[in-house]
């Protein structure tokens, strides 16, 4: 059992939890994730390691309430426990040698992008961060990101998309060794389209549907540069200019029907909000 040390609501649909898992905190690196199972009947859901504290022995997860498992997770209180919590999984981000980077987070992707911005900042790189949200009420991690970036641009859908901000920065002559884009598949695809003509290496985080997270089921597979890769072990970070996004988008629809059924079963209170 893994205890919930703190729980904080970041916005009405996004929650942060610090979980006691000293062995994982000791090994975690930016870009890695955990898989948890809430209880005996739960499914295994992957969540990015948003932060970790080796001294406290905790791992921070930030999750968006989108379906039955994340709703159930959100009912857990501080002091209660989660049955299974395994990690760190995935290959850490390769950030060595980066002097300047633009890190882009779309919606909840902001939480996944945060540890990468933090790691780059700690390395002494120049870090510009662009985060985009549907509206002002959904903005998360504003102060945290400000603390680890040189410039932080926040946009909301009424003002423009993250790609608009990025285009503007590039047109104004900003140079980056690397762009890291994390968010919905369509957003990551759009960012890659923007950076391609500039020849800027663009890393995306592929959140495929997963079960084991150790490379034994192949459910998380995607096509990168014409080859089949497993997101859970070869990724989740990949070169965005090589990813077959159209296929990835199709694959994410696999369980639409069942997810709707499961949500209804759990009488999800978010039904009205989507």
């Amino acid at each position: 059992m893994y205890k919930i040390i703190t729980k904080k609501e970041l916005n009405p649909t996004v929650t942060l939890m610090e979980i006691a898992a000293p062995h994982i905190a000791k090994k975690a690196k930016a870009g890695q994730f955990i898989i948890l199972r809430i209880d005996e009947k739960g499914e295994r859901i992957p969540l990015t390691i948003a932060d970790y504290d080796e001294e406290k022995g905790t791992v921070t997860i930030i999750f968006q309430i989108v379906g039955s498992s994340t709703s159930k997770l959100n009912t857990k209180k501080e002091g209660e426990s989660i049955l299974d919590f395994v990690g760190p999984l995935g290959t850490p981000s390769h950030l060595d040698g980066i002097k300047s980077a633009c890190v882009i987070g779309g919606g909840l992707g902001t939480a996944i992008a945060y540890p990468q911005a933090k790691a780059l900042h700690k390395m002494g790189a120049k870090v510009d961060v662009i985060t985009g949200f549907k509206n002002d009420d959904l903005i998360i991690l504003k102060d945290e990101i400000a603390a680890v970036s040189d410039n932080h641009y926040i946009t909301t859908d009424d003002k423009g998309f993250v790609t608009d901000v990025l285009k503007d920065l590039l047109e104004r002559g900003n140079k980056y060794d690397m762009v890291i884009a994390i968010g919905p598949l369509v957003m990551m695809k759009a960012v890659c389209d923007v950076t391609k003509p500039y020849g800027i290496k663009t890393i995306v985080s592929m959140n495929s549907i997963m079960i084991d997270g150790t490379g034994m089921c192949g459910g998380c597979r995607l096509t990168v540069g014409g080859e089949t890769k497993f997101a859970c072990v070869d990724g989740p970070d990949f070169d965005g200019h090589l990813v077959d996004f159209d296929e990835a988008i199709r694959r994410s629809y696999m369980y639409k029907e069942q997810e709707t059924c499961s949500r209804k079963e759990h009488n999800c209170r978010l039904e009205g909000m989507r």
Binding site: K41, S69, M216, Q258
Partner: peptide
């Protein structure tokens, strides 16, 4: 592996009592 893991380990054959789906 994926099909059998969903069914045997995650008990998808009892979906939606268990949360893991299989098609």
């Amino acid at each position: 592996n994926e099909f059998l893991t969903r069914i045997n380990l995650m008990k998808a054959y009892k979906f939606p009592e268990y949360d893991t789906p299989v098609r």
